[in-house]
C-alpha cells in the first residue's frame, strides 16, 4: 500500500497547480478549471485519508464536494455568459470599471 504521505504530496501539488493557474490566467474558463483542480486536490486528500482512518466520512464528503463543484460551475458559467455579452470577451482583466 502506498504510504499516505504521498497522497498528501500529490494533493498539495494539484492544489498548487490550480492556485498557479488562478494567479496567471486571464481566461475565465481556465480560471474555473483551475478552481476545479483545487477542489479535486481536496477530494484526493479526503479519499486517501478515508482509507487511512478506516471510516467512510471522507469519501462521502468528497461526493458532496463534487456535487457542489458542479453547482458552482453552473453559476459561474452563467456569470461568464453575461460577462461575454457585456464585454465581448471572457478575459477577467477587462472588467475594471471600478477602482480603488
Amino acid at each position: 500500500m502506498v504510504p499516505v504521505q504521498w497522497y498528501l504530496l500529490l494533493a498539495t501539488a494539484v492544489f498548487c497547480i490550480g492556485l498557479f493557474g488562478i494567479l496567471t490566467r486571464k481566461n475565465a474558463l481556465l480560471f474555473l478549471m483551475s478552481v476545479e483542480l483545487m477542489l479535486n486536490a481536496a477530494n484526493i486528500n479526503l479519499v486517501a485519508f478515508s482509507a487511512y482512518w478506516g471510516n467512510i466520512t471522507g469519501q462521502t464528503f468528497s461526493l458532496f464536494t463534487m456535487a457542489l463543484a458542479a453547482a458552482e460551475v453552473a453559476v459561474g458559467i452563467g456569470i461568464i455568459l453575461v460577462l461575454y455579452r457585456n464585454f465581448d470577451d471572457v478575459d477577467v482583466t477587462l472588467a475594471k470599471g471600478m477602482r480603488w
Partner: peptide, 24 residues
C-alpha cells in the same frame, strides 16, 4: 456584471481553500 464576476472569482477560490483546509 463586473461585481458579480469578481465576487464569484474570489468566492470560488476561497471556497476551494476552505475545502482543502477541511480535508487537511
Amino acid at each position: 456584471v463586473e461585481a458579480g464576476l469578481k465576487y464569484f472569482l474570489v468566492g470560488a477560490v476561497s471556497s476551494a481553500v476552505l475545502t482543502f483546509g477541511i480535508s487537511l
